[in-house]
Nucleic acid binder design. Structure first.
Length: 824
RNA sequence: GCGGAGGUGGUGGAAUGGCAGACACGCAGGCUUCAGAAGCCUGUGCCGCAAGGCAUGAGGGUUCAACUCCCUCCCUCCGCACCA
């Protein structure tokens, strides 16, 4: 018979709710702890990834609670987004109805896991109470020029009929539906995240408790690189062609330059030249290609000669100007200097079109695969030859400057600095930083999102909706056909508006916001979820923020976290809060795998949490998922493992119900004092492991403790402490046993036990004896034995005779209370 | 290519310079049972009858002592990339 988990879990979920055990109210003078897990998109079903994420968070929340912290542990729903629209089309319902149904179902599933959320603080981003403040924040950004419209070529997903941020294009496809992305010109709303690029980079240094890999990923994403903008000149007109490079050390090896086909100088440059016709044809052809095709690695790089030449300012050499598709207008200046000897793309292009190459960095590393040819080349260079036909690839590594005028002989890293300074002095270049980060495209041609609060007036132009008119509500009714763009466009009552300034008939913006906007500040809303005067109450935010511990999937390591950091800095500039970073400590949990693959519908390897709860109960599911792997690593789902967790709980249940003791040759009964010692050691281990999110070893310690009790007996203090130590992991189970042992108050109001250091002191210790680093014997000695006495005991150990005979000890290493090593 | 994380029994994992394999799963044998389930006990890295030897991706180094530190290489996973 197993313990009655079903009744126990249902009962306690109900009682915790009724008694508001997890309600968080600010209280001066008590330390706060804000624990947040990334809120889910309400797809309707929770999956094992959710279970893992929220179980990890719940253990931490309950642990902190029992340590005396006032814990804020909220939950909500990231409820806007495209799946609701697709579901509406498919099921002939409305996104609103579908989403709320999903939320209700999902909330129930979360409650069945017994998570300690303060449900009174629940928010859903699709409720106008919430998205009103999206609009308010947008308007504040608009007023400051941080939200702006820009006509540009955007990524267009033909299946979703929507634009995608560059960040949302994955492998040339839509990040959601994976359709190939096309290019389209549209007027779009952008947020100027680049205005915060320096802060976003700099403040990463404050995030001491973030995983290093996330910091590295953010850093790469922001992508600051130091380089030089070099001023080439068009030979005939003398017009300046700025070129950006981070490899100014290779400037003397520039044998041609390349402009993007869209470069503004191209048309002027080719006018009347024999190449004009061919170049125009090429430009027309490239304009048909999407950025994705142009970016593909396996596609051959194409280009044409423009007929013009540029003057390299460092040596006044005239080099040909080419037009090629591998240079994009969006990056840098839309023009590059090509150094085929030291850049692989330039190398391939030069080979293809028979352009010259010149070595200017000579490799010093003889083991480098490309060195053989390069060494030869270096020699031939010195011998005055210029042929480079032996080369099979560009050399992009470090080396010594050659063929570089006054910089010859310098290591290239040193030359980089010197050349940059020299160019600034001679006014032929300017030291510049280049950033990878671009502004954030937030417009979506969709219905199920926050309407952008803007009105287009034929007289006044782009006009902000006044704060008093917020929220701009989404109309409940709209045609969902899945075709022809945004359904909002077709709702006349919505589109028709009056200009707030001059009252003439005007047109309302029908684009909605990307859902990343909604999730960029929800952690602030949780501090005062019902506040009606602003997105959040400054005082509540001052009390609760920043989030002490944030937990979520690694897939959000860049976008969501970067946008949230950006919003936080924006609010700080508005004076709405006073800290730089929203999340003090971050944990990224690993994925849940089955048979080595990520669980997914398409693989058909999903294990439904529901079925596990039915069969074993939520506590067993929680225990297994915590025990099977450390939180950060991938977790391999194992149906048999869950049996093990269930067995353990039943074992503890029997132990506490019947005070049962079994003994055996291996498990000699320990006296009560020894069991107490084990208890104190367990308290220490579990507490320290919980602080460090090492749940798997914390549970292992508890299993050992249970094994000890099982064979030795116990008293009430031992059992109560065992139950408390178990409670963050298996809350219903522990609460039930706690109350059965006569406690009226919830176990989560109990204080976390402290261990007595005096109880950890051992009177006797086992010393491992090694000879030449190999274990040969062990002896038990008093913990406070003197070094000399120990040495005497060790050297007279019979077991060591065979190893010490004829071999006088040369050295005697002693590690107190642990080990001796005799070197012979 | 760049950045990051990894590689330990049949499996998940433990050990951050000091007894490699804690704690579990699985497997084998036993007790109990009419039988099964549950429970309980014992064993379980590899070779070897044993003494002992060998083992943490491979190879080298530092050390009295290396899964742990250093060097070289191999492999797996994740993220990013015509970013000039």
């Amino acid at each position: 018979m197993h313990y009655p988990f079903k009744e126990i879990e249902e009962n306690w979920q109900k009682l915790w709710q009724e008694k508001a055990v997890f309600k968080a109210a600010a209280e001066e003078g008590r330390p706060k702890y804000y624990l947040l897990e990334m809120f889910p998109y309400p797809s309707g079903k929770i999956h094992m990834g959710h279970v893992r994420n929220y179980t990890i968070g719940d253990v931490a929340a309950r642990f902190k609670m029992m340590q005396g912290f006032l814990v804020l542990h909220p939950m909500g729903f990231d409820a806007f987004g495209q799946p609701a629209e697709n579901a509406a089309i498919k099921n002939k319902t409305k996104p609103d109805i579908w989403t709320h149904k999903c939320i209700a179902w999902m909330r129930q599933e979360l409650q069945r896991m017994g998570f300690s959320y303060d449900w009174e603080r629940e928010v859903s981003t699709c409720d106008s109470d919430y998205y009103k403040w999206n609009q308010w924040i947008f308007l504040r950004m608009f007023e400051r020029g941080l939200a702006y419209k820009k006509a540009s070529s955007v990524n267009w997903c033909p299946a979703c009929e929507t634009t995608l941020a560059n960040e949302e294009v994955v492998d040339g496809g839509c990040w959601r539906c994976h359709s190939p992305v096309q290019q389209k010109d549209l007027e779009q709303w952008y947020l100027k995240i680049t205005a915060y690029k320096d802060k976003l980079l700099e403040d990463l240094g404050q995030l001491k408790d973030w995983p290093e890999r996330v910091i590295a990923m953010q850093k790469n994403w922001i992508g600051k690189s130091q380089g030089v903008e070099i001023y080439f000149k068009e030979k005939q007109s003398g017009e300046i062609i700025p070129v950006f490079t981070t490899r100014q050390d290779t400037i003397f090896g520039a044998t041609y330059i390349v402009l993007a086909p869209e470069h503004p100088m191209v048309l002027e440059m080719i006018k009347g030249k024999p190449q004009e016709k061919e170049v125009l044809k090429f430009i027309a052809k490239v304009s048909q290609e999407s950025k994705v095709v142009r970016a593909a690695e396996d596609v051959k790089k194409e280009g044409v000669f423009s007929g013009s030449y540029a003057i390299n300012p460092v040596n006044n050499e005239a080099v040909p100007i080419w037009i090629a598709d591998y240079v994009l207008m969006e990056y840098g200046t839309g023009a590059i200097m090509a150094v085929p000897a030291h850049d692989q793309r330039d190398f391939l292009f030069a080979k293809e079109h028979g352009l010259p190459m010149r070595i200017v960095i000579q490799s010093q590393v003889t083991s480098h695969p490309s060195t053989a040819s390069l060494d030869k080349l270096g020699t031939s260079l010195r011998a005055g030859k210029s042929q480079v036909e032996d080369m099979t690839e560009a050399y992009e590594g470090d080396g010594i400057q050659v063929n570089s005028s006054q910089f010859n002989g310098l290591p290239n890293q040193e030359a980089k600095l010197k050349i940059a300074q020299w160019m600034e002095e001679k006014d032929i270049g300017k030291i510049q930083a280049h950033w990878r980060l671009r502004d954030w495209l937030i417009s979506r041609q969709r219905y199920w999102g926050t309407p952008i609060p803007i009105i287009y007036c034929p007289k006044c132009g782009i006009v902000a909706v006044p704060d008093a008119d917020l929220p701009v509500e989404l109309p409940k009714e709209a045609p969902f056909t899945g075709e022809g763009g945004s359904p909002l466009n077709k709702v006349k009552e919505f589109v028709q508006a009056k200009c707030p300034k001059c009252k003439t008939a005007a047109r309302r913006e029908t684009d909605t916001m990307a859902t990343f906007f909604d999730s960029s500040w929800y952690f602030l809303r949780f501090c005062s979820p019902k506040f009606s005067k602003a997105p959040f109450d400054k005082l509540e935010v001052k009390y609760w923020m920043p989030v002490d511990q944030y937990i979520g999937g690694i897939e959000h390591a860049i976008l969501h976290l970067l946008y949230s950091r950006f919003f936080n800095k924006f609010f700080k500039d508005l004076g709405m809060l006073d800290f730089d970073e929203p999340f003090s400590r971050l944990l990224t949990q690993g994925m849940v795998l089955k048979d080595g693959d990520v669980m997914s519908k398409s693989r058909g390897n999903i294990v439904d949490p529901d079925s596990i709860i039915k069969k074993y109960g939520a506590d067993t599911l929680r225990l297994f998922i915590l025990f099977a792997a450390p939180p950060e690593t991938e977790l391999e789902w194992d149906d048999r493992g869950i049996d093990g967790a269930f067995k353990f709980l039943n074992r503890v249940w029997r132990l506490i119900q019947s005070h049962h003791v079994t003994t055996s040759p291996r498990h000699q009964p320990q006296d009560l004092n020894t069991v107490k010692k084990k208890m104190h050691a367990t308290i220490k281990e579990v507490t320290e492991d919980l602080e460090n999110f090492k749940f798997n070893t914390a549970i292992a310690s508890l299993m050992e403790f249970v094994n000890t009790i099982y064979h030795s007996g116990q008293d009430e203090e031992i059992l109560l402490n065992l139950i408390i130590l178990l409670s963050p992991f298996v809350p219903h189970f522990s609460e039930e046993l706690w109350q059965r042992l006569g406690n009226a108050e919830s176990i989560f109001r109990a204080r976390w036990p402290k261990y007595d250091p005096a109880m950890l002191a051992e009177e006797k210790v086992t010393i491992v004896i090694q000879v030449n680093g190999k274990v040969r014997s062990k002896i038990e000695v008093p913990a406070d034995i003197s070094e000399d006495r120990l040495k005497g005991l060790v050297l007279s150990d019979e077991k060591l005779k065979p190893w010490l005979q004829n071999n006088p000890p040369k050295n005697f290493i002693l590690v107190p209370k642990k080990l001796v090593n005799i070197v012979v």
